[in-house]
Simulated scan of single mutants.
Amino acid sequence: MPLWGIDLGGTKIEGVILESASDTKVISRLRIDTEADQGYEHILDRIVLLVQKLSAESGLTPATLGIGTPGTLDPITQTLKNSNTTCMNGKPFKKDLEAKLGFPIALANDANCFALAEARLGAAKRVMPDAEVVFGVIMGTGVGGGLVVHGKVINGRQGNGGEWGHIFLDESGGPCYCGQTGCVETVIAGPSLQRYYESISGKKATLKEIVKSYEAGNDPHAQATIKRLLEMFGKGISVIINIIDPDIIVMGGGVSNIDLLYTEGIAEASKHIFNTKLDTIFLKAELGDSAGVFGAAMLVG
């Protein structure tokens, strides 16, 4: 049975139809603009339009589809929360969209869709196809995560399963937009690292420039910034390892491209785990910008 997936972003909505859960050949794949500035109802209508376009191109009609969203559907209130597309927060998104489409949908946040895709189709599938527990890490503008157990997303009681970006890491991260202080995101997200570098050097620099200066060995402030990243990453990810003990951690997002995370970062994590040896496998994500929409399709397959 073909699987339908929608990846809802703040600027674009992408849809895909895959042949089946076992054959991920793409039947159809389209993108349209979200046009989020026109409001909540308009976003719903844009999703409906994309489904219609996919149906017209493929000649198929969906009975259900999976959707990856910014933010999370609260399992108790059945309203969306924590979305950076703020007009969606507090709205019964699943119920409203099902009413417009006329069929049931499955929903998960974008980090969970990333984790699911990498577990069932990407890096984790390639290295350990029978992995029981896969944790997906996104480190970029923000820090997010997704948890997949036996090929299924774990959303949790409050819909926050896998959200390691908002566990406490270090007071020095300062206030977080979530209302807490010192979250993982405030310490090791890309913009957070750039702010730290500026605070100690008095100069602005992109993360790429900081990494380049670190590698050149001629900037003590770059050295301090990357050392902070590696140490804090190790502390933060060790909490995940100690609690859920994943077989594999798959890492995506711009910060995850820093190769030192897979050597010195892992070495830092090993200092804080409840085991004599760190056997968790760390992998770079392989699916790129396909992860979100493929993972959404996997929600129903």
Rank of each mutant, 00 (worst) to 15 (best):
F168N: 09
Q38M: 14
D96N: 13
W164T: 07
G301F: 02
P70G: 15
Q180T: 13
G122A: 10
G39M: 13
G162F: 05
A285V: 12
F294H: 02
Q223M: 10
N275S: 14
F233T: 04
D279K: 13
P175E: 15
G292M: 12
G68Y: 06
W164L: 15
M88Y: 01
D279P: 02
L65G: 07
F294N: 01
G71Y: 00
V16P: 01
P62Y: 13
L299N: 02
F103H: 10
V148Y: 11
A63L: 09
R46M: 09
G68L: 11
R126G: 09
F168E: 04
I27P: 01
T34H: 05
A36P: 06
K53P: 04
G39Q: 04
R195V: 10
I13D: 05
V250I: 14
G173E: 11
I27Q: 10
C87I: 14
F135W: 01
R120N: 15
S192R: 09
L8W: 05
D130E: 15
G71T: 01
V148R: 08
G234P: 04
L261S: 04
I258Q: 09
L97K: 07
G151Q: 04
D96C: 07
L30K: 13
I237E: 01
I281R: 05
D170C: 06
T206V: 07
T263Y: 08
V133Y: 00
G265T: 09
D245F: 00
L169Q: 07
I76K: 15
T34F: 07
G136K: 10
E198W: 05
L50K: 02
F282M: 06
L116M: 10
K91W: 10
L229V: 11
I249H: 00
K95E: 14
G288I: 13
A205Y: 02
K212L: 12
K95Q: 14
Y262G: 01
L97I: 12
L30F: 07
